[in-house]
Structures are given as structure tokens and as C-alpha cells.
């Protein structure tokens, strides 16, 4: 199963748990959009150009998903990994900057 983080916990972890709702929604939206972009690129990284051409020829969306899961079994974990990586990156970035500015 996917081990996706809870959005509220995610926000707390990156240090913005006390932000107002609008800001939190904005950040989550950005995070999710970024995750999606990264996922697309990661999937493309996993596929050869021949596979990409094959993927393009599948018209049905459900079949496309099934095809992807066949070719990239770790796809579900990639998603959770992306969120984990993002969280780690943001925290590391914050710590680094805070340290620099001490």
C-alpha cells in the first residue's frame, strides 16, 4: 500500500503548521503539483523511447495505467518517495538557510 503522508502532518514537518488555512492550501497545492511534475519525469526516465512510443499508442486511460504498472512495478512507491524526498529537501533547505543566517 501507499505510504503517503498526511497533508497536515506534512505541513507541520516542514514548519508551516501554524500558517493560515489559505497559505497551507496554497503550499499543499504547490507540493502536489510539483510531485505530479516529478512523477511524470520519473516515469519518463524509467521508460525507453520504444516503451514511450508504445505507451502513446494506448488509447484507453485504464489500460494505460495498467500498462504503466506493469512496466514500472514500483510506481506506487515512487509517489510516496517523491513526497518524502520533497519534505526532506524542504527541511534541509530551511535548516541550511537558518544556519547560515545565525
Amino acid at each position: 500500500m501507499l505510504n503517503l503522508p498526511n497533508s497536515t502532518e506534512f505541513l507541520k514537518d516542514i514548519g508551516v503548521g501554524n500558517a493560515d488555512q489559505e497559505t497551507k492550501s496554497e503550499i499543499i497545492a504547490k507540493i502536489e503539483y510539483l510531485a505530479k511534475e516529478r512523477l511524470i519525469l520519473k516515469v519518463l526516465e524509467k521508460l525507453t523511447e520504444e516503451q514511450i512510443a508504445e505507451f502513446n499508442n494506448i488509447e484507453d486511460e485504464g489500460q494505460s495505467v495498467a500498462w504503466l504498472e506493469t512496466k514500472i512495478p514500483e510506481l506506487p512507491f515512487m509517489i510516496s518517495d517523491i513526497f518524502m524526498d520533497l519534505k526532506d529537501e524542504i527541511i534541509a533547505q530551511k535548516v541550511k538557510i537558518m544556519e547560515q543566517q545565525k
Partner: peptide
């Protein structure tokens, strides 16, 4: 997006 901050909300899932 309105549900983004619900307590039980998990971050994005595909499909």
C-alpha cells in the same frame, strides 16, 4: 483542493 486540509487527507494519489 477544498479537501486538502481535511484531517484524514493523504497527499495526492494517482488515478
Amino acid at each position: 483542493s477544498a479537501d486538502i486540509l481535511s484531517q484524514n487527507h493523504k497527499l495526492w494519489q494517482p488515478g
